[in-house]
């Protein structure tokens, strides 16, 4: 049975910027271990000759011409934020790639 350690859960939460408490770490460790254990059944499938599918459309080379169109007005662009300052989005100072 695959076991995802508490330390891994903490690391994942950090990578995903999700805050979790001790209780949640415990719960998630159990739940995720169960799920990952289940999906590991895929190891039974022979995929030697399989090419990975990441899109089902079969489309290629879908691009747009180098033409511009109108952008949002500033008030619409920033209007949904609770923290703006002179047209900028405002956040507390960032240190080490994380917002305090």
């Amino acid at each position: 049975m695959i076991k995802i350690k508490h330390s891994e859960i903490v690391h994942l939460a950090d990578l995903a910027q999700i805050k979790i408490n001790k209780k949640e770490i415990q719960k998630l460790s159990l739940q995720l271990s169960k799920i990952v254990d289940y999906v590991s059944e895929l190891n039974d499938v022979d995929t030697k000759n399989a090419v990975p599918t990441n899109q089902t459309t079969g489309l290629t080379n879908v691009t747009n011409d180098d033409l511009t169109s109108i952008s949002l007005k500033q008030e619409d662009a920033v209007g949904q934020s609770k923290n703006i300052y002179q047209g900028f989005f405002k956040v507390p100072i960032t240190i080490k790639n994380k917002i305090i």
């Binding site: 300052y85 002179q86 900028f88 989005f89 405002k90 956040v91 507390p92 100072i93 960032t94």
Partner: peptide, 12 residues
């Protein structure tokens, strides 16, 4: 610095 605190201002 805005007032007494430091902020990061973002422009996209």
């Amino acid at each position: 610095k805005i007032g007494s605190e430091y902020f990061s201002l973002i422009d996209f």
